[in-house]
Design a protein around this nucleic acid. Sequence first.
DNA 1: TTCCGTTGCGCG
DNA 2: AAAGCGCGCAACGGAA
Length: 599
Amino acid sequence: MRVAVVAGPGRTALLQELAEDGSAYAAPTLVNDLPAAVAEHERAGPEHGGSVRWVWADTSTAYPLLLRAGVRVDRCHDVALIEALLLARGEAPAGAGSMVAQGAPLAQAVAVAPRAAAGRWPDPAPGAPGQATLFGPAEPGIDEARDVLGALVLAHADQLRRIAADTHPARFGLLAAVESAGGLAAAEMSARGMPWRADVHDALLAGLLGPRPGPGLRPPRLAGLATQISAAFGGRAVNPDSPAQLLKAFAIDGVPVPSTRSGVLRGIDHPAVPFLLEYKELARLHAAHGWAWLDEWVRDGRFHPEYVVGGVVSGRWASRGGGALQIPRVVRRAVVADPGWTLVVADAAQLEPRVLAALAGDDAFAEAAGTGDLYQALAGAFGGDRAKAKVALLSAMYGGAGGEASQLLAVLRRRFPLADAYVEAAARAGEEGRVVRSRLGRSCPPPSAEWRDLTASPDEPGADDQRARRSLRARGRFTRNFVVQASAADWALVLLVGLRRRLADLAGSAGSAGLAGTADPAGAGGSFRSGAPVRALDGPGLVFFQHDEVIVHCLRAAAPDVVAAIGDAAQEAGRLLFGATPVRFPVTTAVVDCYADAK
DNA sequence: TTCCGTTGCGCG
DNA sequence: AAAGCGCGCAACGGAA
């Protein structure tokens, strides 16, 4: 059953039951307490022929409010996310061809719906008071909610039609489902938070940088290195944070460098280099994940990053604030399970080349990808050299071919012609300005108008011609990589969503066995959530998702079940994407107390 | 003062 | 012959 939902004044909302084709078969009903109404539907769902799929405008605004009220939902259809997937295919903008007779253009409905769906009931979380009324929309009246609901229902039905009309409706429908479920998983992970020991992090920083300095000051270790660097430049004052000053200082000493990248500096003979390399590494840690980061992002033993589903064109997630997807390896020491709990860290091994093998249907390649170590299996084609096999593969997928790689590429081309042809075709499509798609049908962006202008007249001699060639090649590399990276993202998303479902089943069935558990570090009492404990987030839960890696936080006793669930979800992902294929998608799992011990 | 492009580096 | 893909964030330094 599908139920469209739009928030009204206070905790009220309008709900409308929909048929599977998206058409409304009952009048909207007004509920006084949306979280309670949703919770009731979720409880009643299974006995009434399957759980509800909530149809709403934007999970990232609607769902956190439900989670805060302790309500988890199983399934949804996120109209904003799905509209983005549909529009990316390059169809005419919604409204041009598919405008619904009496309604506003669908694009407008989608644009307005999140505003209303955000809900306006009292928000106990800390925030800027008054901001909502100053800059945000006024609380929606029930009439406005009714209008938005109408638009939402039409938009949703239209999206179902457009999905069904896709070249591969089953795959694209799966993409729509997992994209929406990804939105749910992202909101849950943000709310649940990643276990984070501020004391461990602080000790780690102090060990590397010295005691915490006053605001705006360099930590002792960095200050010392800065002094040594200036001394190495003959006593000139040089700010090591300034590439411009460094370039000048090197030039004055007769050692011109093209840039101050650490890779460049490593090949330079100058007394300042060793200090500089160490300074850069530590300064980076201090600036990106130092004490200021700790103050801002870690509360009550949890790091609460905000994930942006669909934030990357390839379908990977992005993050907003806290650099959640760039946590340096050293800092992972601070990610520690609660007492009695553990972390299950799972990583898809060599995901992208395996995805390529399955995509291309290259038997020889797929056979190699049917083993545990893909690169080792391919090494035979490269004189037994695993490293060479890896370089060749990465070059094929990224479009690189510097130095030795070109010869390795030639070997790859000869031995695995279909895999080579697959990425070459994608590159050609890109150079011709076409759009390519992932396995499940996510489309890459079309070339910009500037790109079309620049590449329109190819054989004009001169500087423009050079630029045109470069742009052409760059887009070829982009689309070449897109088909692999985006299909790998498809796979990872299917894994994530399948795992989320299995973890919920585990929590549901394990309550009496004591495997569910409630994470409540240091007796925090859920104070971050400013209210009652959030039952929706009890039990084994996803706490991290980074492209091809997931982390589950669970009671120790539940770890074996979680490991099994991950394996099942990975197998299911391979099957859903590629059907019968010899390619395996192995996942390495580590059950550890600390994230840093996972690799 | 604020804004923004560049540089550099963390992650996959 | 040479070129590799995708992000977020912080600091700098010149422009506005």
